[in-house]
Amino acid sequence: MHKYITRRILQFIPMLFVITIIVFGLAKAAPGDPLTGERLDPRIDPAVYEERREALGLNDPIHIQYWNWLSSVATGDFGTSLQYTGRPVLELITARIWNTLYLSLFALGVTLAIAIPIGIYSATKKYSLFDYGATTFAFLGLATPNFFAGLLAIYVFSFLFGWFPAQGTSTTIGLTGFELFIDKLRHLVLPGFTLGLASTAAYMRYMRTEILEVKGSDFIRTAHAKGLSSQSVLYKHTLRNALIPIITLLGLEFGTLLSGAVITERVFNYPGLGTLFIGAISNRDYPVIMAINLILGVSILVGNLLADIFYAIVDPRIRYD
């Protein structure tokens, strides 16, 4: 067990370095550098320009530049934004990262709360009307692009019914405590369900398939044969085994949610990392682009690591690999 976890963590470290190398490489591949604007400025003396390049380390060999960049990133210094002149990238990100986390967690909560019960019920009532209904929903959910689902949600639930706000994170200024919480929650409903739609559809299918698969195994027949109630067989034997692969998928889901958030946040004008990222892409704000790439890449890597470790804890078979 400890050996497996140690080995998995040791594999994690080189991957971390590779990600930083790729992000650094992309930043270098991008046209221009922090001083491009000044080189084109005729009022600036070429000698001064060269001096400033030297001071910023832009003339250093590439591996020195990488090392300098990596050491500043390690202390949380991602440089300054080009688009919001002079503002530290870290400040821009910390101002928005919580909104994206709330949104992703809400979507994940929606996914699990809907997909798992429906998947279980579909599997126990295979080929019933309910099962067909769930299958139809899953097909539609997987075929609807995230942004189109969001627009439909705004049109129906915001414009036609007026139940939920269409944009942003809060409407009334000056709310405090519980009222503020409710207001924020109301703003999360539409983007949260939109972001969770595709994964809800997918997990519903996974859950159904897994349960059907486990139901066919010998130990379930044994459990039935020794006279356990069908409730007990379902919850104690079938479900526990069927949930194991779902855990690994959840580790990978993290990346899908964060990527999906880029589009969803755009539809709902939700001030998170996604809208910051899109703004940065439009303005070629490379320091911001690279910082977000790095942060999300590392989060996904950590998500996968945690899923693997958790998998090893709940499924003893994996440790002998």
């Binding site: 991957m15 990600i19 790729i22 990346g255 964060l258 990527s259 999906g260 880029v262 589009i263 990222f277 899109i278 892409i281 682009i289 977000i292 790439n293 999300l296 890449g297 996904i300 890597l301 996968n304």
Partner: peptide, 9 residues
């Protein structure tokens, strides 16, 4: 591991 959409953008 690289987030697909972010990489494309």
């Amino acid at each position: 591991i690289l987030p697909f959409l972010l990489l494309v953008l």
